[in-house]
Amino acid sequence: MLDPVREPGRSSDVSAPTSPIEAGRMISEHFDTRTRINMKLALDRICRNRAVGEDHAFRKSVAENIIRCALTGRTGIGQLVDAGERAVVTTRAARKPV
């Protein structure tokens, strides 16, 4: 789930979207074209050539980490890919039995 983000000049919080349409709207309102392209490229790089790369839950986990990274202002392709890789490590660790 995304953390709420407070924008300067807005009195209300922007919270996690509840539908795919709201998610798309949130992303297009918060990020410029270059950032959105970098976010998509990062998601594609992380998911390509992975056995679970097409799994919805996996992609969602990676995408959420990429969005959180971009919301902090780290929007370079390398930074976004690193954020996506961290999600992979976290997801893999959560799946492994102790």
Rank of each mutant, 00 (worst) to 15 (best):
I27G: 12
P20Y: 07
A83G: 08
P20W: 06
E64K: 10
K60E: 03
N49M: 04
E64R: 12
A57P: 02
D55P: 01
I67C: 05
S11E: 11
E22M: 01
D13M: 13
E29K: 14
D55R: 01
T18Y: 12
R48D: 07
R86I: 09
E29W: 10
S12M: 04
A93Y: 09
K96W: 13
H30T: 03
E29L: 13
D32E: 15
A94R: 15
G76L: 02
L43K: 00
V98N: 15
G76P: 03
A70T: 02
K40F: 12
R68L: 15
R45Y: 06
A70S: 03
S12I: 04
R10K: 14
P8Q: 00
R92M: 13
S15Q: 14
R45Q: 15
I67A: 04
S15T: 10
C69H: 03
N49Y: 07
E85L: 11
R45E: 07
R6Q: 11
I46W: 02
P4W: 09
K96V: 12
N65C: 11
H56F: 07
E7F: 10
A51D: 11
E64M: 07
F31T: 01
G53P: 01
H30G: 04
H30V: 03
P4F: 14
S19I: 00
R50G: 11
D32V: 12
A16S: 07
P17S: 15
D32A: 08
L43Y: 02
R25C: 13
K60R: 14
